[in-house]
Each structure stands twice: as C-alpha cells, then as structure tokens.
Amino acid sequence: MADATLAAPTRAAAVPRGARPKRALSGRNIMIYGTLFVFSVYYLLPLWVMVMTSLKGMPEIRMGNIFAPPVEITFEPWVKAWAEACTGLNCDGLSRGFWNSVQILIPSVILSIVVASVNGYALTFWKFKGSDVFFTILIFGAFIPYQVMLYPIVILLREMGIYGTLWGLVLVHTIFGMPILTLLFRNYFSTIPEELFKAARVDGAGFWAIYAKILMPMSLPIFVVAIILQVTGIWNDFLFGVVYTKPDLYPMTVQLNNIVNSVQGVKEYNVNMAATLLTGLVPLVIYFISGKLFVRGIAAGAVKG
C-alpha cells in the first residue's frame, strides 16, 4: 500500500508532456523528401543548364560539358540576345519583341479583365431573360479548339481593317480570355451575399456605382488572379502573335523562335539560352511575387460553382 502511494507521483512525473515527438528519419519522410528531391532536380536541371550555358563563351560550350559551371563568366550572350541578334533583316535583338509584347500585353490585360468582370457581375446580379443560356454559350466557347477559329478571325479582322495591327491582336486576346475570365468572376461574385447588392440598390447606387464602389473593392483577390492568368497567358502566346501580326510587330515569343531557329551561321547556344531566359523572365517574376496571392484568389473563386 505504502509502495503504491509512493510510486504513483514518480510515475506521474515521468508522463511525457506535449505532442509525441516524431522521428525525423522515418520511412515516410524518406519517401516524401526523396520524391520531392528527385522532382526538384528533374525540373531544376534544365534551368541550371540554361543559365550556365548562357554565361559561357562559344569555345567553352564546344568542349561539351553542359553541366559544368562556366570557367570564365561572360555576359556577352545576354547583351547580344537583347540588342544584336538577327531575325531576318532586323538586327536589334529581342528588345523589339519585348516592347511589342509589352504593347500587346497592357491593353489586352486591362480590356479583357474589365469586360469579363463586368460580364460576371451582370450575370450574377442583373440576371436578364436568357442570361443563363448566354452564360452557357459563353462557357462553351472555352472548349472550342483555337485552330477552328483561326481563319474566320483572320477574315473578321481583315473586314474590320485591323488585321496585322497590334489592336487586332488585343481584340483577339480579349475575346479568347472572355469565357474563362467570366466564369472566374461570376463564381467569385456569386459568393458575395445578394443582400449586399440589394442594400446598395436601396441606397440608390446604379449598375456602375455598385460595380465600382461596392464589388471591386471587395474583389481584389480575384482581380489579382485574373491579372496573373492574363499576363502569363498573353505573354506566352505564340499562335495568335504569329497569325495576326506582321514581322515588325511580332511579340517576343515569336521573335525568340525566329532567333533560335535561324539556320544561317553558327548555332550560338549561349545566345539562344540567354534569349529564352529573357523571354521567360516576365511570367517568372509574376509568379514569384504573386504566388501566395494567386493561390488565395483561386481558392476564393473556387468555393462556389
């Protein structure tokens, strides 16, 4: 009896507190981190090769060891890719394509987002007869392959007199962004309580006032998502750029292709690598700054379908 009473407190003191400690090197962890490591290497290796090659001179590249870091670092390929590489008769590098892309990108992103957000807003809060049918048709547009529409749009732009201009391409980007962006905005807006909209109407706000003063300030995450989607999508576009513009106005992606695929002279791998990295820089930067916002916004837009 005495033993038991004495033994009890000691045992109580030995009882561990807090969460049960986990072994760092459990089989599960090895599996998880091993897989992650393999996949990181798989995706990072090409980037490594590109960055290293772009910093080497041609003689060093010819030695053939593509994984080795440069013995002598040179930025000449980068300068050449940006300002001197030739495509056809123009020898001002990618810089021309870059500015073309910027000129296409900014109005396309703004226009497509403004139109799609107003679309989504009207389809959520100002339902009209047949608005659901309209929405279904719009969404259906997202599933039609681009190839089917390429030539009809060429004719359409020609008839409108904007074929081969920047504005023609801006229009095409706006139209093709419409289905997915409208869906995105409509889904987000339908999570906003309808009573808020009713209250604003009682308060005398009209169609545009409710959009601009009530909904827009509440919907920043979804606007960020839309901007990211459009910036990366339009920047990476190749097909529309090559079909609907002229060589003078080719966006950066098309020009990159032309530089890399030019047949005359020596293949300058270092310049090609630098040019590719330069072209990919814009989406890369966007992802780095907005990764968190992007995930948050997508999650917010996906709550209600």
Binding site: P193, E195, L196, K198, A199, A200, R201, V202, D203, G204, A205, I214
Partner: peptide, 17 residues
C-alpha cells in the same frame, strides 16, 4: 427604383459594405 420609393431597408445579414 428602390431608391426612389422613400423606403429604408434592414436586412437579416446586415449587408454592410
């Protein structure tokens, strides 16, 4: 229009901006 009817309305979910 709602705003022209001379009414004020209070909602269940408050509906504050």
């Amino acid at each position: 229009e709602p705003s022209e009817r001379g009414i004020g309305m209070v909602f269940q979910s408050y509906a504050l901006y």
